[in-house]
Structure formats: structure tokens, C-alpha cells
Simulated scan of single mutants.
Amino acid sequence: MPAYPPEVIVVGYSKVPMSSAAYGNHGETFAISLVVDRASHVVLDADCTADTHVVREWLVQRLIGHRVDLDPTDILNELKSSYISPARGSMQQAVIDAWARYGRHLGHGDS
């Protein structure tokens, strides 16, 4: 059996509203990329396609340290209460997609 690296990368996607600045720069897709520790399921690093450095860093700070094998409701609620933008729903959906994709990975299904 091959030895796997201690981390796995998980990417979540969503559609971006046309009213968002990210729509013009990144097309119709918002993505978050997570580096997840295989043993603890904890997000070690993250990035996203948000249009500004401030938003990217803000989101990364909220994602690092969370377990992707647990419910993401706390993160989603924080985004709802603290991120005021037309792209908030896209950001939330990308989180949901990444968490679901990781859950399928744990179940050994195709992600």
C-alpha cells in the first residue's frame, strides 16, 4: 500500500453573482482550497479566489483550525453575520461544498 502524505487538499466551489467584483476577475466560480491534516481532519492552511487580499486573509483566518469532518455551521454563521457582500452566499456555498467533498472522501467515494 502506498504511503500518502500527511495532508490532503480539498477544494470547494460555488457560482458567483454577477454583481460581485470577483465575477469579472475569476469568472463565474468562487473556490476555496483547504490543506487538511489526514489524521486530525483540521484545516492547516487555506486560500480562496476572493477578489481582495483583505477578504482572502479574513476567510483563511476563519477556516484554519476547523475540523472538516464536523458540521460547518459555526463558520457559516460567522460568514452570515460578519461578511457583508453580494458574494457571501457564494462563499458559504463553497464552504459547504468543501466540507461535503471531504465527507465523501472519508467515505471513500469519488469527490
Rank of each mutant, 00 (worst) to 15 (best):
S90W: 11
A87D: 05
Y4R: 15
M1V: 06
V8R: 11
G109T: 07
A22K: 06
P72A: 07
I9H: 08
E57G: 04
P17L: 04
E7P: 01
G103A: 07
I96T: 12
Q61F: 04
H53D: 14
L76S: 05
V35E: 08
A100N: 10
S14V: 02
E7H: 08
L59H: 01
T73V: 04
G109Q: 08
H66A: 11
V11Y: 00
P72K: 02
Y102Q: 01
V10G: 00
G65E: 08
I75D: 08
W99Y: 13
L106I: 05
I96S: 12
M18I: 07
I64F: 00
M91Y: 04
R62V: 02
N25P: 01
T49L: 14
L70G: 05
A39E: 14
E57V: 00
G109D: 08
A46E: 05
H53R: 14
G12P: 03
I75V: 12
A100I: 00
K80Y: 10
L63P: 01
Y23S: 08
V95P: 04
I32R: 02
F30V: 01
S40W: 01
G89R: 14
T73P: 00
R67P: 09
E78F: 09
A46G: 10
G12M: 03
M1I: 09
S19F: 04
I64R: 08
S20M: 05
T49F: 14
E28K: 15
N77I: 02
E57Y: 03
P17T: 06
H26M: 13
S19V: 13
S40A: 09
D74F: 11
P86G: 06
Y23H: 13
